[in-house]
Write a protein that binds this DNA or RNA. Structure first.
Lengths: 197, 197
DNA sequence: TTGTTAACTTGACACTGTCAAAATAGAGGA
DNA sequence: TCCTCTATTTTGACAGTGTCAAGTTAACAA
């Protein structure tokens, strides 16, 4: 039942954090089952008893990433000025802060999300769906005051999510982002003005 | 000078197209130097004389991807109704069409773009910069009529690029895209109305 | 203490990228 | 025609990867 027993204290957790470290240190190519095992101090085949192969470990790492992702957005929202516009902007800046502070993890999450979901039948899939949905809800709540009343109630959240995700993907990584034709404006300058519902 | 000589007609080209096929068939994990070589009918070490390792082949594949990308956007623009708004929307729909018809390539391009650029010192880097810049120019031209006159002249193109890229990444892949809370509206419904300059 | 089961190790296999050395084909000059 | 000579390709090897099978060890229950 409890995970604190046997040789290693909590190998499953150690493998996930080892994977996060490897990912941030050396990119996706450095995320290796054997390196995770070595970093956790166990033999190369030990992870097989906690994860259904490499893809399951990757899925667990992505799920952990979504948890960190949601936490950072919530922290930004907590320290925002009052008002729906300020809260929405804070959430977006949390989004961008995560994509910058966890650049490799951020790209890894959205790159392999779709591919991985079809390769795992674990309980990991459940955890992954849960964490990613929660992260989306954080952004969705911030968009709710701006949802249009007519037919397309999701259009604002889809717009904001697409906008901030594209911005993070294309320009968020580098310290001084630029297009081929010039510097990139701040995100606050491209976020449209939405009418309150 | 010409590439049509020696054993294989044009091995470099054959390796790139083999890589494109493998990528679309089996995802990024299936893109392998040895498989590319086998698909081109040469031995496993033959690619070394045309590409400075696997990363260079990947960079060449991405460069080719940007060329296809730009071509598809230009085709959509050519068959668009007159008027700057229709042309901009057509470019975006070309963007989305590419991300759907070349899903694996699209994700591969923007995932490894940044990582790869720091690992190649080839002439491939030149080709990659050139093709990607050209693709960006296509989108930039379509945004030009809507560029604001004040200080932030790039804000519209950055907005549109972020928006369409995020939309393609998050919702473009699946046939019936949906958020955790409902169906996704068409892109035309979330593209804001920009004032003409 | 004994037995049982989960956790882990050891060893092996096919596959990967990369390197060194050998072999081969094509072109240009005698 | 023959003969270099260089670019291209092949063969062979190496370390590293994920995964499987079998053996070993540790923790706990009876």
């Amino acid at each position: 039942m409890s995970k604190e027993k046997h040789h290693h204290g909590d190998l499953r957790e150690a493998l996930i954090t080892a994977g996060l470290d490897l990912l941030e240190a050396g990119g996706p190519a450095a995320l290796t089952l054997r390196k995770c095992a070595a970093l956790a101090g166990v033999s190369h085949a030990a992870p097989a008893h906690h994860f259904n192969g490499l893809v399951s470990l990757k899925a667990a790492i992505i799920a952990r990433g979504f948890r960190i992702f949601a936490r950072i957005m919530e922290q930004h929202r907590a320290s925002a000025a009052p008002g729906p516009r300020a809260k929405l902007l804070a959430i977006c800046q949390g989004y961008l802060a995560f994509s910058a502070s966890h650049a490799a993890l951020f790209r890894f999450m959205f790159q392999d999300f779709g591919d991985l979901k079809q390769q795992i039948n674990d309980s990991v899939l459940n955890e992954l769906e849960q964490e990613s949905t929660h992260a989306y809800q954080v952004l969705r709540e911030a968009c709710a005051p701006f949802a249009p009343v007519g037919g397309h109630e999701h259009s604002t959240e889809v717009l904001v999510w697409s906008l901030v995700h594209g911005y993070a993907t294309l320009f968020g990584g580098g310290k001084k982002p630029k297009t081929p034709s010039g510097p990139v404006p701040d995100f606050a300058q491209i976020l449209p003005d939405f009418p309150l519902r």
